[in-house]
Design a protein around this nucleic acid. Structure first.
Lengths: 255, 255
DNA sequence: GAGTGGTCTAGACCACGAA
DNA sequence: TCGTGGTCTAGACCACTCG
């Protein structure tokens, strides 16, 4: 069956045409947010294509953050608009790491703390929980200048984490994954520009009143529970954050 | 053929096991950077799996930036290490846009300029080229405070771009794609913290000596040629940059 | 012309969720 | 128990690259 409802109106692979069709239908509200799309088999029948084609189309919708898929349930619409034009991060990395493969984190303090008001709000957890709190300075191997000040909060269920003393060469989330068989699934990142305090400037060995990048990362597991939060402060000039995005689908609404 | 060389050593889907195997072989240097991996059919035979399984495994390697694939050529190793632990940006968006669907760019100046030394270095192009240069202020619809100062350079072949006057509600790269049938494939982004100059502070209506986020984006087409470069300066406090990453493969080297 | 990856079909079995 | 999406097979045709 080479003829179907898609070929007449578009060009490109059939799964892309199908993805575009579904994209437009979601956008138009034919399938409301929270609803289930037709099943794979239903779409196979509706459009006269194989399951492969339907699944490839669904993959594009998932990548755009329009739907989520659950085995045994179906494909649920979670948004009417694609969250971003570009997906597929190729590299989200500091330019420092591009040239120096290794950095080390010198742990200054590491102890259990009861979460106070400010921190509770920042972490989005209840007051009174006891988290593992780690402070340190990260630097390049063969360089005396520090790259950043780091502050890490580890969730109570993982606070017995071992080995957080001295210079660390592996990220803390990796140690968590190994020791507790927990799997980081998602990372939320926020970046701001901040003025360095006098204390920070001194520790980072930069002149007073310079500014810096404030980068907060929230590491979430499969159930979207916060596992770790890390806050880094990088002095300006000595550091810039680089990343690349690739566009890997081609839904052109116009034209 | 349910038995193959993969099942005995790992768990999970076969394509993930195969991906891990190839991942380790690339890391170990069995396939050097620049070399071609075995073809899909060869791997089908070697591991006793179908082409589907091999292709799914290859997809994971592509996502990690380890290989590139070319029809008619093969799968070439481009790196021995995965460029980042996480791919699949879910959203790379400012928190402002999350709540306000639209921002507008008020164009202040728009004219052709001959590239001088500094700019040439920044753009990575030769001196003397004539680019379209646009300056503007971006702000939210129902808010008087500007979000950022923006400076855009458009490549000579697109400098006849129309409609860059007055308030713009669509991104410039989108206008380029429409008017010139050019397709943006990749975006490289760099973020720094900077001190705002007095002029900037005034235009952004913030106190002097505050700091800001400096965000530069390079838009590249399919041939990796620079199409547009945009530089934005966002005042601190009024703006933070947020994004999320999802991990969608599970190559655990240890264990 | 031979071989590559990209697309596509028509089947199949499985684990899991919901009724 | 039944239907879902996840995995997998064994074919097929195509456009493209390269010798």
């Amino acid at each position: 069956m080479t003829d179907n409802n898609l070929g007449a109106f578009s060009s490109g692979p059939r799964y892309a045409q199908l993805a575009k069709t579904l994209f437009n239908e979601i956008k138009s509200g034919k399938y409301a947010v929270g609803e289930l799309l037709p099943t794979e088999f239903e779409l196979c029948a509706q459009f006269g294509v194989s399951r492969f084609t339907v699944r490839e189309a669904f993959k594009q919708l998932v990548q755009q953050g329009l739907i989520v898929r659950q085995p045994g349930v179906g494909s649920r619409v979670i948004s009417r608009e694609s969250s971003t034009q570009y997906t597929q991060t190729m590299s989200g990395i500091t330019d420092l790491r591009q040239y120096a493969s290794e950095t080390t984190l010198d742990v200054l303090t590491s102890n259990l703390v009861e979460i106070n008001d400010d921190v509770a709000r920042m972490l989005g957890v209840s007051l009174g929980e006891t988290w593992l709190h780690i402070e340190g300075i990260r630097s390049l191997e063969k360089q005396t200048f520090p790259i950043c000040l780091t502050e890490v909060y580890v969730a109570p269920r993982f606070r017995s984490l071992l080995g957080v003393t001295g210079p660390l060469t592996r990220p803390i989330y990796q140690m968590l994954e190994e020791q507790f068989d927990c799997r980081i699934k998602t990372v939320h990142q926020e970046i701001q520009a901040v003025n360095l305090t006098a204390a920070m400037s001194k520790k980072l060995q930069v002149p007073a009143r310079t500014c810096g990048l404030w980068i907060a990362r929230r590491y979430m597991d499969e159930r979207d529970d916060l596992v770790e939060m890390a806050i880094s402060i990088h002095p300006s000039g000595r550091f810039s954050y680089r990343e690349s995005f690739r566009r890997d689908w081609q839904i052109k609404t116009g034209k």
